[in-house]
Simulated scan of single mutants.
Amino acid sequence: MTLRLPCLVTAALLGLGMLGPGTALAAPDDTVEVEADRLDLDQRAGTAVYRGNVHIRQGKMRLRGARVEIQRNDAGELSRATAYGQRAWLRHQPDGQPQPIEGEARRIIYHVAERRVELIDQAELNQGGDHFTGGRLEYLIDREVVQARSDVEGSDKQRIHMTLEPEE
C-alpha cells in the first residue's frame, strides 16, 4: 500500500538525520543534546551506541529509545540512526504545520543517503487526526510517500490501519 501524503512534511522525519556535525541536514545553530545511561563509542568502526532511556534533542526534533545506534560512513558523516525499545519514539514539529508528526515502533531507522525512515514492528505514525498503524511504515522523505506493510520478519502479521481526518 502506497499513499501520497502532502500533510507529512519532509522536515518532519529529517530530524533523525540531524544527529551530529557532518550531516548536511543539520541546522548549524541547533545543538544536539543526548542523555543516556551508557555510551559505547567505537571511532574505528564509526559507531556509537547509547543505552538506557536515551533522549536525543535537536531543535524541534526529539528521538527516544531504550537503545540508539549511530553509524557513520568513511567520511565521518551520519549514515544511519536506529532507535530500539518497547516503544521507540520520534517527534518533530515541522515549520508551518500546526501539528507535530509523531511516530512510534519497536525499531525506528533513518537511512541518511536514501532519505528514508522505517518504523518497524507495531509501527504508528500520526499528524493531527491522521493516524497510520502496521507492521512496517516507511516514509520516503523527498517524495513525501508513506508505504505501509503488514509483514514484519519474525512476528505475527500486523495489518495496516489508516484513519484520515477530513480537511476543513
Rank of each mutant, 00 (worst) to 15 (best):
L90F: 13
A113H: 07
L119D: 03
A113G: 07
R91K: 13
E102N: 11
Y110R: 05
I109R: 11
R106G: 07
V112D: 03
D121F: 10
I101G: 01
L119S: 10
E102L: 13
G96T: 12
E102H: 00
E124S: 08
L90D: 04
R115D: 07
A105W: 00
A123S: 10
V112R: 09
W89V: 03
G103H: 06
E114N: 12
P100K: 10
E104V: 00
G103V: 01
G96N: 12
P94D: 04
I108L: 11
R106K: 14
R116Q: 14
A83V: 04
V112F: 04
P100T: 12
G103D: 08
E124P: 10
Q86P: 11
E124F: 04
A105I: 05
R107D: 05
Q86K: 06
I108M: 04
R91V: 06
G103M: 02
D121I: 10
S79Y: 04
P98G: 07
I120M: 10
G103E: 03
G96Y: 08
W89R: 05
R80Q: 15
P100L: 11
I109K: 08
D95K: 10
E118F: 05
Q93Y: 06
V112T: 03
A88N: 02
I120G: 09
R106L: 12
L119I: 08
I109H: 04
R115H: 11
A105D: 08
G85L: 06
A81G: 08
P98M: 14
R87Y: 09
D121K: 11
E102M: 09
Y84M: 12
P100G: 02
H111Y: 15
L78W: 01
I120D: 08
Q122V: 11
A105H: 05
R116M: 09
G85C: 13
R80Y: 00
G103C: 07
Y110K: 03
A88H: 00
E77L: 00
Q86C: 06
R87V: 10
Y84A: 09
E114Y: 01
R115C: 02
A123H: 08
P100Y: 07
E124K: 11
R115W: 07
Q97D: 14
S79A: 06
I108A: 02
L119Q: 02
Q97E: 15
V117I: 15
R116G: 00
E114G: 01
Y110P: 12
A83F: 05
G103F: 07
Q99V: 03
L90K: 07
H111W: 09
P100E: 05
R115V: 05
V112I: 08
R116E: 12
L119F: 15
A123P: 08
Q122W: 03
Q122R: 14
R106M: 14
E124M: 01
Q97S: 15
Q93P: 08
R91A: 10
W89D: 06
R107E: 14
G85H: 09
Q99S: 12
H111P: 00
G85Y: 13
R106H: 13
A81F: 03
E104G: 04
T82I: 15
R80S: 05
Q93E: 15
I101C: 00
R91F: 11
T82G: 00
E118R: 01
A83E: 06
P98V: 09
R116W: 06
I109N: 01
A105K: 01
E124Q: 14
R87D: 13
R91S: 10
E104H: 02
V117H: 03
I109Q: 14
Q122G: 06
Q86E: 15
G85E: 09
